[in-house]
Design a protein around this nucleic acid. Structure first.
Length: 510
RNA sequence: GGGUCGCUAGCUCAGCGGUAGAGCACUCGGCUUUUAACCGAUUGGUCCUGAGUUCGAAUCUCAGGCGACCCA
């Protein structure tokens, strides 16, 4: 409450009068708490090491008992105990005005404050390595109380809205974002070492493309130009391959104007990788090597556990065609259907739904896959060979009519990566995009349009190329055992909270 | 878009028609080996918002807001 805040403001004023900020310019720690814990693990109970260390961090808990006090101070690396003795502190700071350095420390420092301390090391009789403090300084006064020290922040909404509090009190949350950073940097390093160049492509585009999704719309004022945020990086990265970059990638933010769920956030991160003179079988190898490497770097193993299920990411991974998987699960062999009606009737006989929007045998095959197979693919599985109708940017299969050379990677029942032997024939590509355009005109909001500039690039000649996209957020969910995508996005999209002061004035009736 | 559940003190929660509660945090007092410190005292509320039912609503009803989960 504001009374609590007022109390802390008063303490801040008192600190200022004592020459203690309360918002310091800088402090130079000599160690992190984890370094101290590691370096002095051998210090026996009740003994001291008379060296001088300086550490900075946030006061997490306070235990004051008369002329002795224990604080827990946490920096990024973790906690350490402060051993605060009145006699030691007062003797080391004789110039401190009454009632003395110890009293100032215990009465003006609250849980949540950032302080710096200098002192020696001591392991207490109870075995806790502690900094025996000789002097201290206020680095930043907190005006807000910390969440419950025992229960932490249990309210998920508060954890997302006030992620800073979640990070302060939840080591698990900190570890999740540390792992995310490790995963992203391991991925970049792996690609860089193999001569892939990361090249940034536009987020603002006049024509969205490269995926089936609804874009966010915006506007450029000076050019008076309607623009959309990118829904994929595909079409620009391919232009770069046309331009002669044989190995390119981009790891960055993608925006899709769709719903929010445990697996979807309107802005998310993908990496797309393109390798000239390669096909989708090369991309399968690249995918399993890359993801296994990242997993090894982040988790120290490729045999992990996700929500209680053991997942083995050690290559090689299972490969199966969509046809075979659907046949195993439903008994239906989609290669034998020549008309949509035939396929739909067969599906319905097996209790599957054949929606009207799925207007071809191929689209029904995908429907059957989604209804009966997808969620059962727990261990990493490459699902091969998709119908051409659903894959306007993938090249026709070398031996299977009506299919394209495409795979999606499924892990724990979720699509985690998507790759093609890229379509490089500009005439075929134009027909495919025009078919998309027709669907769009017929009301399919997610269908793609015809990107003339991209088609012109293809006409200049694009080498045979393998392309791959990986959903970083879903991969990080797997590597951090997180059940929701919001657990791996520091600031997930939420509706703005309606605050009292921003509420509209109560006026006339509705 | 549909369904279920939730929203009460700074935090974690109880209360489920009859004076708004507990633990922690805060404030004050005590305490030199604590680590959810302890002991004692105090303080703290738009019970998410609005309307309705009722002698009386945190509690029941309706509408709305925000969120979680499931489904599409």
């Amino acid at each position: 409450m504001s009374e609590l805040r007022e109390t802390r403001l008063e303490k801040a004023r008192t600190l200022a009068a004592l020459g203690q900020g309360p918002y310091a310019l800088r402090f130079e720690p000599s160690h992190s708490t984890a370094e101290l814990q590691a370096a002095h693990a051998d210090l026996p109970k009740g003994e001291e090491r008379d060296l001088s260390v300086a550490i900075a961090g946030r006061v997490m808990t306070r235990r004051v008992m008369g002329k002795l006090a224990f604080f827990t101070l946490a920096d990024q690396s973790g906690p350490i105990q402060l051993y605060l003795e009145k006699a030691t502190l007062d003797a080391a700071s004789p110039d401190s005005p009454p009632p003395g350095a110890f009293a100032h420390l215990t009465s003006l420092v609250d849980a949540g404050d950032l302080i710096g301390v200098e002192g020696s090391l001591r392991r207490t009789d109870r075995g806790e390595l502690s900094v025996k403090v000789k002097s201290w300084s206020m680095l930043s006064k907190s005006l807000q109380p910390l969440p419950d020290k025992w229960h932490g922040l249990a309210d998920v909404e508060k954890r997302y809205r006030q992620r800073y509090l979640d990070l302060i009190v939840s080591p698990h949350t900190r570890e999740t974002f540390r792992r995310r950073a490790l995963a992203v940097s391991a991925m970049r390093r792996w690609l860089d070492e193999r001569d892939f160049l990361e090249i940034e492509t536009p987020v603002l585009q006049s024509q969205p493309g490269g995926a089936d999704a609804r874009p966010f719309e915006t506007h450029h004022n000076t050019l008076d130009l309607p623009l959309t945020l990118r829904i994929a990086t595909e079409l620009h990265l391919k232009r770069l391959v046309v331009g002669g970059f044989e190995r390119v990638y981009e790891l960055g933010r993608i925006f899709r104007n769709e719903g929010v769920s445990t697996r979807h956030n309107p802005e998310f991160t993908s990496v797309e990788v393109y390798q000239a003179y390669a096909d989708y079988t090369d991309m399968m190898e690249l995918t399993e090597q890359l993801i296994a490497h990242v997993c090894q770097q982040v988790c120290g193993t490729t045999a992990i556990s996700y929500q209680g299920t053991a997942i083995d990411l050690t290559p090689p991974w299972r490969r199966a065609t969509m046809h075979a998987l659907v046949q195993d699960a439903t008994g239906l062999d989609f290669t034998t259907f020549s008309t949509r009606e035939q396929a739909a009737a067969a599906m319905e006989s097996q209790g599957l739904v054949a929606p009207a929007l799925a207007d071809s045998v191929g689209r029904l095959l995908v429907e059957a896959f989604e209804q009966r197979v997808e969620e059962s693919l727990i261990q990493p599985t490459f699902v091969l060979d998709y119908p051409v109708e659903n894959s306007p940017l993938a090249r026709a299969h070398r031996s299977k009519p009506g299919m394209v050379e495409r795979f999606e990677l499924f892990i724990v029942g979720r699509e985690t990566a998507n790759a093609f032997s890229e379509l490089i024939d500009p005439v075929d590509q134009r027909q495919r995009l025009e078919a998309q355009q027709e669907r769009k005109a017929a009301g399919d909001l997610e269908a793609q349009g015809v990107d003339e500039d991209f088609l012109q690039a293809l006409e200049v000649g694009m080498p045979p190329t393998g392309g791959l996209g990986i959903g970083i957020d879903r991969l990080v969910m797997l590597l951090t055992d997180s059940p929701s995508i919001r657990d791996v996005i520091a600031f997930p999209l939420l509706r703005p909270e309606q605050r009292a002061e921003t509420r509209p004035e109560q006026g006339g009736e509705g």
